[in-house]
Amino acid sequence: MELIERYLQVVKFGLPKRQRDDIIAELSGDIYSQVEERETALGRKLNEAEVEEILKQRGHPLLVANRFSPQESLIGPVFFPIYRFVLKIFAFGYLLPATLVWIGLMTFSATYRFEQTQPSWFHAFASLFSYLWFTTCLVVVPLTIAFVVLERQQTKLHLFDRWNPRKLPVIRDANQIPRSSSAIEVAFNLIFFVWWAVYAHSPQVRIGSMIHISFQPQWLWLFWGYLALALGNTALSATNLLLPFWSVTRAKLRLFSDGVGAAIFCWLMQANILAGISITNVPAEKATALAQAINHWMTTLFPAAIVVGLVVIATGIYRIVRLKPAEGDSLP
């Protein structure tokens, strides 16, 4: 009967310490009773293969032991959906954009790519991975501990005892446009339109009496582009204010204006648009160096601008996809 003892030894390993001996005594009695009954029926001792068969019918010893263990989980079913939701926000709100920005920088910025791959490409990937891993640990470990503490303390804290149905989140139609946000957009676009038309119509801009900024001649393209966009966006936001639900047509218009805005912005970042700066009481060489630094800084951020632009466009496309065609077609 060595096999039975070996089986019980493994079951014992997986049992809660406090009940270990008691459970093993009972299980042992059960197995030996079954063996004895078979032996009585057959009129002989069971051979090893027959004992093995009995044990196999009972299942793996660790699984048997598991049935006696209390359900154990660090974060239970009540808090787990919230925990998963927060992790998703971290993954999609930080890890993914950070990776995309890195890809953008590696693709479009030769300087950055050179710096990162100086020893080797492996070093570049290892550097990205260690950065993401460190950030993840920094966020996920305290977050997990906080949820574990909440899980353990939920009864003492009476978290679910005091609640009010009126304080539950309101049902929000994803296609609804809050009138407050449309009103803010109208106001912002109008202010921008006036400010832009008054102060940015010339490649020569004065800020007070001290600073004089010169832009490249292409500045006019930028000026007219943003002026038209501000006007178009004002009209679109005003329509949204009156008809506070997205329609396919207006969602397409918003995608178009966002796409054009993002394209102009990306072009601006790498156009070395700043021709020169002159500041009263600042030597010309220093002012020139400042202009070059600003141009360099903008060029460096060009990949990040592309990523942001892509996210804006993806959001616009998602808005169109999620609209029900029947609803969209019924509204202008």
């Binding site: 459970i23 009972e26 299980l27 059960d30 009972r58 299942g59 699984l63 049935r67 006696f68």
Partner: peptide
């Protein structure tokens, strides 16, 4: 009923 179900239930 297997013993893995019965004995925990009895307890």
């Amino acid at each position: 009923i297997d013993e893995g179900t019965l004995y925990p239930l009895l307890r």
